[in-house]
Design a protein around this nucleic acid. Structure first.
Length: 719
DNA sequence: GGTAGCACCAAAAGC
DNA sequence: TGGTGCTACC
């Protein structure tokens, strides 16, 4: 069994890191620059608390934002400490709140097996409520209203408080919707994602016994990515840390990029004010990138005024200069990036060590096209998540109704899926009837006649009620995977997809099968397998762990890239209106945009290339964008700027040119160092040959370097 | 009650 | 340009 000894684990740390590990008592703020070994500090600190300070594992609460981060931390601690690591509370904000809330749910009138609604469910519920209140859905867009409600909850604004603060007619409507929305959730024994935080805070604030219980439970609290916390999360930490004051926040204000979803950078900037006698430690030594890359990043971020001064440095040498390349349009940009990637792979970079970042998902398409054409393996991170797929959500909705029958949103979702003749009219009647009688929609299913339904509808609804009866008794006897199978069989979901006979339906069936596999995994990984337990687990799970790509080049938005690193990074579309985005320019969000750019730059270990196009087709329109202002903020040192000649690129990478079999053959007769003669430019020397038939020639006449396409340039070798 | 076709709109995304 | 959500029609 691996046991960490202080000598061993302290030896691998620099002095700032060591101090952060050893300063165990009282509030601690660790400003951790990109690549400065933040996770190392967190894990070592926990190990130190347990092995040297003698803290019990279950007295430590380590909070992250993502399941992935929590999983990684647990894994590393298991390596260091062995099985005791299992008892530490290493959880996401939501999972931690979920645990506390389940055991305190009764205080707020919920049952502990409450259902958790994701954002899709939330919007559906808002829609229903708007409908019931007879609001014009054009004036009051469900998504927009939901955003308001979510924002209010993040700020711990209850429906009552919201109503007090109403400042416009629109607000007035939101207040009405918010109130009814919250009542509906409660009636369904359901909470939404935002409630998990807000209600946990409410329990801790309103019930002193609960507050004492959890304050005593956690002697030490650690939070990762503190710069991304919103007000509710901030308040939660205050409450939990109030007694022991052993709150350790780790984060980097320069990497705060989630204001748009409620994160408040002031939480980290004002931590020292909020927790008196805070010790602050800055980690500035970077173990990831060359100095060329860090100097570029430092120069850009220093243009922000809302920050804590910090300067990253590394011992990894200057490295290759950062390259800024101007291309003609998004197609030549894609071809250029593809050619460069091919070159890196020739230089023995693995595909998985290379990434392409963009500001918005829509930019990935062109890049994907060219990479496919070039035969370069790639994976795109982002896009629809497994558990958000419609068919998967359908099964989950069935399971949720079985587990928690009052859950009306789930019941409405699957009442007519697959089609069984229960339309909107029928459902509306049932809903009205249920409300009139003060019963749940589920109970109303057993009284179709009383609800005033026609003969056909009565038959259909009775069929549904019977289906649920049969599934509920199945749920008593079967394990989760078998129960899911029973849902497939008795609802005819799979049959319905099979009848479609389309590729799309095939894919849906595969997803449903994968879902059963997921349930099997759950069953084997837990001691007591229950339906409730399974649902709780998956409702907080979401795929960010698709990042396991083998040898593939990775394509993703910069937001997705946070926390990751690659030997070579390309950032495309570094143009005004794109990056910074037009919205951020209008709304004065440039500082956050600059931080996002900074996050992108600091992902690179060795090579960093930034491209911008002089024109670009976006949303059916061609725009000419200026190079991004961020490019002007780069230093001259270690930065190389070049412009690709349009003509050399026009046809590169198009199907006729594609070398399918041997995509990267070099021109056989030329090597670096060869002398060549160009038809119009005269004599020169080859300084670089890149795959894709690209050569760089330094011309003797003026010493200038030009990038040329071998296939087109009038070049001949001279002796 | 189901579906085809059209109009509309457009960032980023964790749980 | 491409995906989505609603209206009009079968």
């Amino acid at each position: 069994m691996p046991v960490a000894s202080p000598e061993r684990y302290l030896a691998g740390l620099n002095s700032a890191q060591r101090e952060a590990v050893l300063h165990t008592e009282g509030p601690l703020l660790v400003i951790a620059g990109a690549g400065s070994g933040k996770t190392r500090v967190l894990t070592h600190r926990v190990a130190h608390l347990i092995t040297a300070v003698g803290v019990k594992p279950n007295e430590i609460l380590a909070i992250t934002f993502t399941n992935k981060a929590a999983g990684e931390m647990r894994e590393r601690l298991t390596t260091m400490l062995g099985p005791v690591a299992r008892a530490i509370w290493i959880l996401t904000f939501h999972a931690a709140c979920g645990r506390m809330l389940r055991s305190e749910a009764e205080r707020l009138g919920y049952k502990s097996n409450f259902t958790i609604y994701d954002s899709q469910d939330q919007v559906r519920l808002v829609k229903q409520v708007l409908d019931d209140l007879d609001k014009d859905p054009k004036r009051f867009v469900p998504r927009g209203i939901h955003a308001q409600i979510s924002k209010a909850k993040n700020q711990l604004v209850s429906p009552a408080l919201y109503r007090e603060r109403v400042a416009s007619f629109y607000d007035q409507t939101v207040a009405e919707v918010y109130e009814l929305y919250q009542k509906r959730l409660h009636a369904s024994n359901a909470v939404d994602f935002d409630d998990m935080l807000m209600l946990t805070v409410e329990v801790l604030e309103r019930f002193p016994e609960a507050r004492k219980r959890w304050q005593n439970a956690f002697r030490y609290v650690l939070v990762d990515e503190y710069q991304d916390t919103n007000h509710a999360q901030y308040r939660l930490l205050q409450l939990l840390g109030e007694k022991h004051q052993n709150v350790c926040a780790v984060g980097d204000p320069d990497q705060s990029i989630y204001a748009f979803r409620g994160a408040d950078i002031r939480n980290i900037l004002e931590f020292e004010r909020d927790f008196p006698d805070t010790r602050t430690i800055a980690l500035e030594q970077n173990y990831r990138s060359t100095n060329a890359i860090l100097e570029a990043a430092n120069a850009v971020i220093s243009c922000n005024s809302e920050r804590k001064e910090k300067r990253l440095w590394s011992e990894l040498g200057d490295g290759e200069p950062v390259r800024v390349v101007e291309v003609e349009d998004e197609h030549s940009e894609a071809r250029y990036v593809a050619a460069q990637i091919a070159g890196l792979i020739d230089e023995a970079y693995a595909g998985s060590e290379i990434a392409v970042f963009y500001r918005m998902n829509a930019q990935s398409r062109v890049i994907e096209q060219v990479l496919r054409l070039q035969g370069v393996g790639y994976q795109v991170i982002g896009g629809p998540r497994f558990y958000e797929r419609a068919e998967v959500k359908d099964v989950i909705a069935y399971l949720q109704v079985l587990d928690n029958p009052p859950d009306a949103v789930s019941l409405l979702r699957i009442a007519n899926r697959p089609r069984r003749g229960i339309g909107d009219t029928t459902l509306a009647r049932l809903v009205t009837y249920a409300e009139g009688r003060g019963i749940s929609l589920y109970e109303a299913l057993s009284h179709p006649q009383e609800a005033g339904l026609g003969t056909a509808a009565v038959k259909a609804v009775t069929g549904l009620a019977n289906l649920f009866d049969s599934l509920r008794s199945a749920a008593q006897e079967l394990e989760v995977p078998e129960l899911i199978q029973a849902v497939y069989d008795r609802t005819g979901m799979i049959d319905a997809f099979e009848a479609e006979r389309t590729i799309e339906a095939r894919g849906r069936i595969e997803n449903l099968e994968a879902f059963v596999d997921g349930a099997r995994e759950y069953e084997s990984s837990t001691e007591v397998s229950t339906l409730s337990g399974f649902l709780q687990e998956i409702s907080l799970f979401s795929a960010q762990d698709e990042l396991t790509g083998e040898s593939n080049v990775t394509l993703m938005t910069i937001h997705n890239a946070k926390g990751l690193e690659y030997r070579a990074v390309f950032v495309v579309g570094v143009e005004e209106e794109i990056f910074p985005s037009s919205r951020s320019i209008e709304e004065q969000g440039i500082e956050e945009e600059r931080r996002l750019f900074y996050v992108g730059l600091t992902r690179a270990q060795e090579r960093l290339t930034l491209t911008h196009a002089s024109s670009r087709l976006l949303w059916g329109r061609t725009n000419s964008n200026l190079p991004s202002r961020f490019l002007d903020e780069l230093p001259d040192r270690h930065v190389e700027r070049e412009r690709l000649r349009a003509s050399s690129w026009r046809n590169y990478g198009t199907p006729a040119q594609t070398r399918d079999i041997q995509p990267r053959v070099e021109h056989p007769s030329l090597e670096t160092g060869d002398s060549v003669r160009h038809g119009t430019l005269g004599e020169g020397v080859i300084v670089r040959i890149e795959p894709g038939g690209l050569v760089t020639v330094r011309f003797a006449s003026d010493g200038s370097e030009r990038k040329l396409m071998l296939d087109y340039a009038p070049l001949e070798k001279i002796a």
